[in-house]
Structure formats: C-alpha cells, structure tokens
Amino acid sequence: MVTVADVRSLALTLPRTTEHLIRDRVKFRVGAIVYVAFSRDETTMGFGYPKEERDGLVAAEPDVFFLPGASDLRFHWVCCRLDRLDHDQMTELVTEAWRMVVPKFLARQRLGA
C-alpha cells in the first residue's frame, strides 16, 4: 500500500517540484502545473497521464485505476486507489507524470534518455 508520505518522499526529490495544500488536498506541481494530487481523504491519487493511453490503463487494471470526473476528462489525467497500488507502480507513475510537465532537458538530466 502506498501513502502520501511515500509519494512525497519521491516527488520532492524531483527538480522544480513544490508541494501545496489546496482546499485540504495535497498537490505536487512544477510551476503552476499540477502533476499529482490526492483526494481529501488521501485514499486516491490523480496524476498526469497521456489521454490516448489512459483507457488502456484503466481497462488493464480496473481495480486500481479509474477515469477522473467528467469535468477533468479534458486533461491528461487518470486516478488510482492507493490501497491497491504498489511502490514500484507509484514510482513509475509519479516520475512519468513529472516528466510530462518539465522541460525535456531536465527530464533527461534526471532520468537519462
């Protein structure tokens, strides 16, 4: 099971990431762009994810992943249940969400090609 503390310990190591508490929700962002956000009760996490791939992700593991609300479908965003997510999945999802919002040179510096 993944917790907000687990995500925080990873996210804050990623360059340009800042943590914010907005309307009782923990969010991680680069500049003004949020790439990870938690529900108020911290049981679910939304994260940046390519729109064209999210239906496949949800279909592959519907017990873990789900689509955001209708008003957020226009964004590159998908959600997951933290109690069903393992640490390796979280690391990959958070890192890739961060990669989507930073300049390419910065992602290459941090993660390589």
Rank of each mutant, 00 (worst) to 15 (best):
V78T: 12
P68G: 07
M100I: 08
M1P: 11
E92I: 02
F105G: 05
E19V: 09
A37L: 15
R74Y: 00
Q109A: 12
R54A: 04
M45H: 08
R110D: 00
H20M: 06
H20W: 12
T3D: 14
E96D: 12
W77T: 00
E61R: 11
M100F: 03
D83Y: 00
T44Y: 02
G46N: 09
F66H: 13
P50V: 12
K27T: 14
C79Q: 11
V2C: 02
F66E: 13
M100R: 07
E42F: 03
D88H: 08
A5V: 09
D6V: 02
W77L: 13
M45N: 03
D6K: 01
F66R: 06
T13W: 03
H20C: 14
A97N: 05
V2H: 07
F28N: 04
F65A: 14
A97P: 02
D86K: 00
D83S: 12
F28E: 00
E96R: 15
R81N: 09
V7C: 11
S71T: 11
T17H: 04
A107P: 05
L85H: 01
D6F: 04
I22V: 13
V4S: 08
V58D: 12
L73V: 11
K51C: 05
T18E: 12
P15W: 08
V101F: 06
G69T: 02
R29P: 01
R110G: 05
C80K: 07
W77A: 03
D88T: 05
L12V: 00
E42G: 05
G69F: 07
M90P: 04
P62H: 11
D63Y: 02
Q89S: 09
D72Q: 11
T3Y: 00
V64T: 14
M1A: 14
A113H: 15
A70E: 10
D41R: 09
Y35T: 02
R108D: 13
L73W: 01
R81F: 03
V4M: 02
G112P: 08
Y35M: 03
L67W: 05
L93S: 07
V7D: 03
V58A: 09
E42D: 11
W77Y: 07
M90D: 04
P103D: 12
H76T: 00
G46Y: 07
L21M: 13
F65W: 15
D83C: 03
L82Y: 01
T43R: 14
L111D: 02
T13M: 12
S9A: 10
P103K: 12
S39A: 10
A60C: 04
A59W: 00
V94T: 00
M1D: 13
R54N: 09
V34S: 07
T13F: 04
D55W: 10
L10Q: 06
V101Y: 10
T44R: 15
S39M: 03
L111G: 06
I22R: 14
V26R: 03
R81Y: 04
V94D: 10
G46M: 15
M1F: 01
K104M: 06
L82V: 05
V36C: 07
S9V: 03
